[in-house]
Write a protein that binds this DNA or RNA. Structure first.
Length: 486
RNA sequence: CGGGGCGUGGCUCAGUCCGGUAGAGCGCUGCGUUCGGGUCGCAGAGGUCCCCGGUUCGAAUCCGGGCGCCCCGACCA
């Protein structure tokens, strides 16, 4: 870095910016283990807020949390053919334990379908035992060739929901219910509005019949698969003999779904809202929503510290997460830069002048056009308005992200050449027709590095459905959205 | 797994070409000063120079081998 104090600007090198901001805002750090990161308190606090919100939504819709083991017998993973084909290259395997070679190796879970459905098989006998609606918060391991903090690490944290149903219709409904929950969560909490839709066969989950995805557009116009919900059909039920006796008395295979979001969402948040000054954390996710910086000037700083603490308690009473930064070895300016880099939405300054005049200085992480960075307002007004200001900030992030997504999307692209040009000129999501073959996906990927992110859900489709495939070969069977992806 | 880069105080790095007392900035500790946008001064602590072997009177530096990490691609959440 030329200037150690500043981050590499996004426009100069987005990837460098991302790495620097994650490290220097203390979200995470590289660990001694290749490809594995340490999530530091600031990053983990954001994840905890995500967890809490999602967990509430899962429970509201009837799901319960449970916990299944980290180690999975190798033979389980191998049972579903597509599943093992998809995961084989990235498995970490335990072959030795207790000082002895194991008779059968254990796989460190890359995902838990196999062990969970083997247990469901034990617990489900009758249609009366269905549906089974469980979720687990866990770590999983996939031995990735190339890793990036939060976006792709060998070990990551996630939730994985696994359900079993009596009918395909009910399972499909569950799949879509969760997709909707993910979408709403991403919009309302992360301010990261995804487009939703179906994955093409080549991009779907290993072992699924259908995969639905939330795809968000990052500031560098690359797509991030931010959450997936899979309709598994009876693929796993058949391999693990997950059967039940129906109302009519017949033995039938259950229908499964699985769905997950991971700590990758933290990376998505970074790349959706961050700027050249650092992170911008949406208020609902911010471990600290308001930082209070006392201006420690004058002979007696006690009243200033007391005032700061009093403000904190009042904010706390209003349901706001606030923190006083009373460190006496840093100047106020140094603290401003630090908290701005960490993305705290609002800052309050309290100095002798303010106490005298009954006012507080209020600064916003993102300054609205035409406003000053810092406002001096009556104390009561600041305290009274902060809840609404936090909500407004949250909304503003969402609106800006959605506007950016749409202005970087192009619809009605009808040739591969145009598609290539659109991507080269910095477009994000490109909508075209598709004849449904994987050959087209391969061709386009080879030429543009872009893949089909989704066959968009109805509300995201263009007013006029494309009639021809983008290659010109054959009729379009579905509109698709292309993008380069993380 | 291909290509590139790098391993030297906590961090970022210089020094390596051309062997000769191990350095800078930041950070850290103490004292003082300052504090409303990255205070300033003085004093101080802190190093098996990634590892193993070789050459040499002498290796951070040269030679051989190994390990690790980061970045770019291919594979993937």
């Amino acid at each position: 870095m030329a200037d150690e104090k500043k981050l590499t600007p996004q426009g100069e090198d987005f990837s460098a910016w991302y790495n620097e901001v994650v490290l220097r805002s203390e979200l995470a750090d590289h660990s001694p283990v290749r490809g594995s990161m340490v999530i530091r308190p600031w990053g983990y606090g954001i994840w905890e807020n995500m967890q809490r919100a999602l967990d509430d939504k899962f429970k509201e819709t009837g799901h319960e949390n449970a916990y299944f083991p980290l180690l999975i017998p190798m033979s389980f993973i191998e049972r579903e053919k597509d599943h093992i084909e998809g995961f084989a290259p990235e498995l970490a395997v335990v072959t030795r334990a207790g000082g002895k070679e194991l008779d059968e190796p254990y796989v460190i879970r890359p995902t838990s379908e196999t062990i969970i459905y083997s247990m469901y098989a034990k617990w489900v006998q009758s249609y009366r035992d269905l549906p089974v609606l469980m979720n687990q918060w866990a770590n999983v391991m996939r031995w990735e060739l190339r890793t990036r903090l939060f976006l792709r690490t060998s070990e990551f944290l996630w939730q994985e929901g696994h359900t079993a149903h009596a009918t395909a219709e009910e399972a499909e409904e569950e799949t879509l219910l969760i997709l909707g929950i993910y979408r709403k969560f991403m919009e309302e909490w992360i301010g990261m509005p995804p487009i939703t839709g179906l994955k093409s066969d080549s991009e779907k989950f290993a072992g699924a019949v259908r995969s639905y995805s939330c795809e968000a557009l990052m500031k560098d116009n690359k797509a991030l698969q931010a959450g997936t919900s899979h309709f598994l059909g009876q693929n796993f039920a058949k391999q693990f003999e997950l059967t039940f006796q129906s109302e009519a008395g017949q033995e039938e295979f259950a229908w499964n779904t699985s769905w997950g979001v991971s700590t990758r969402l933290v990376g998505g948040m970074v790349m959706t809202h961050g700027d050249d000054d650092g992170l911008v954390v949406p208020p609902r996710l911010a471990p600290v929503q308001v930082v209070i910086v006392p201006i420690l000037r004058g002979d007696d700083i006690t009243p200033i510290l007391e005032k700061a603490e009093q403000v904190r308690l009042q904010l706390k009473a209003a349901g706001i997460r606030a923190k006083v930064d009373a460190r006496d070895n840093l100047s106020p300016g140094a603290k401003y830069f630090e908290w701005e880099r960490k993305g705290v939405p609002f800052r309050i300054e309290v100095g002798p002048k303010d106490i005298e005049q009954g006012q507080l200085a209020l600064a916003r992480r993102l300054v609205p056009v035409g406003e000053k960075r810092k406002m001096f307002l009556p104390e009561a007004q600041v305290l009274g308005e902060l809840p609404a200001r936090l909500e407004a900030f949250q909304t503003e992030l969402m609106v800006a992200a959605q506007a950016r997504r749409e202005s970087n999307s192009i619809r009605g692209v009808s040739t591969v050449g145009e598609l290539e040009e659109a991507l080269a000129s910095g477009s994000g999501f490109v909508y075209t027709g598709w004849n449904g073959t994987s050959a087209v996906e391969e061709t386009v990927k080879a030429r543009t590095k872009a893949t089909i992110r989704v066959l968009p859900s109805e509300e995201f489709r263009s007013d006029k459905a494309p009639t021809k495939c983008v290659t010109g070969e054959g009729a379009s069977v579905a509109e698709v959205v292309w993008a380069r992806a993380y």
